[in-house]
Computed example of a mutant assay.
Amino acid sequence: MKRFLEYTNKDILALDKEDVEQYIFVLLHDQGSSHSYVNQALSAIKFFLQFVLKHKPLICEMPRPKKRE
């Protein structure tokens, strides 16, 4: 969450689905993070937004990256 919040540099209550999608894209394509790392980051963001901030489930339907074969 800390890395995500530093990346977005937005007020925590102003976060939206596009911020999450952009961050996931950066992790996968620009930083070359592993798919398992990206899934872990996505789970942490989802948990924080939904259960800590009580946001509506913004990213429930967001597809998770598949492991490369």
Results as ranks from 00 to 15, higher is better:
Ala14Met: 06
Leu27Gly: 03
Gln50Arg: 15
Arg68Pro: 12
Lys10Ile: 03
Arg3Thr: 08
Phe4Gly: 00
Phe48Cys: 06
Ile59Met: 09
Ser36Arg: 15
Ile59Gln: 01
Phe48Ala: 02
Glu18Ser: 07
His29Tyr: 15
Met1Pro: 07
Phe51Pro: 00
Met1Ser: 14
Lys56Ile: 08
Leu27Gln: 11
Leu49Asn: 01
Gln22Cys: 10
Pro57His: 06
His35Lys: 15
Phe47Gln: 09
Arg64Tyr: 06
Glu69Gly: 11
Arg68Lys: 15
Arg64Phe: 04
Arg3Gln: 14
Cys60Arg: 15
Met1Cys: 08
Leu53Tyr: 02
Pro57Arg: 13
Glu61Arg: 12
Leu13Lys: 14
Asp16Tyr: 03
Phe51Asp: 10
Phe4Ser: 01
Glu18Lys: 14
His35Tyr: 13
Asn9Ile: 03
Ala41Gln: 15
Arg3Met: 06
Ile59Asp: 04
His55Ala: 07
Pro65Gly: 04
Cys60Ser: 15
Pro63Tyr: 02
Arg64Pro: 02
Ile45Trp: 03
Ser36Phe: 09
Ser36Ile: 12
Leu5Ala: 01
Lys10Asn: 03
Leu49Gly: 04
Val38Trp: 02
Ala41His: 09
Lys2Val: 10
Lys2Arg: 13
Leu15Thr: 00
Asp11Met: 02
Ala41Val: 12
Phe48Gln: 05
Glu69Ser: 12
Leu58Ala: 00
Tyr7Cys: 04
Asn9Pro: 04
Leu27Val: 06
Arg3Cys: 07
Thr8Val: 07
Glu61Leu: 10
Tyr37Leu: 08
Phe25Met: 10
Ala41Phe: 02
Lys66Asp: 04
Val26Ala: 14
Met1Lys: 13
Tyr7Met: 08
Glu18Tyr: 10
Glu61Phe: 10
Lys10Gln: 06
Ser43Cys: 11
Glu69Gln: 10
Gln40Asn: 14
Leu15Val: 09
Asn9Phe: 05
Pro57Cys: 03
Gly32Ile: 00
Glu61Ser: 14
Gln22Leu: 14
Asn9Lys: 11
Pro57Gly: 03
Ala41Thr: 11
Leu13Ile: 06
Lys66Ala: 09
Ile45Cys: 05
Tyr37Arg: 08
Ile45Tyr: 00
Leu58Tyr: 09
Val26Met: 15
Lys17His: 10
Asp16Glu: 04
Pro65Ala: 04
His35Gly: 12
Glu18Asp: 10
Gly32Pro: 04
Val52Glu: 15
Val38Ser: 04
Arg64Cys: 05
Glu6Lys: 13
Ser33Arg: 15
Gln50Ala: 12
Gln31Gly: 01
Ser33Phe: 13
Leu13Asn: 12
Leu28Met: 13
Asn39Val: 06
Phe48Asn: 03
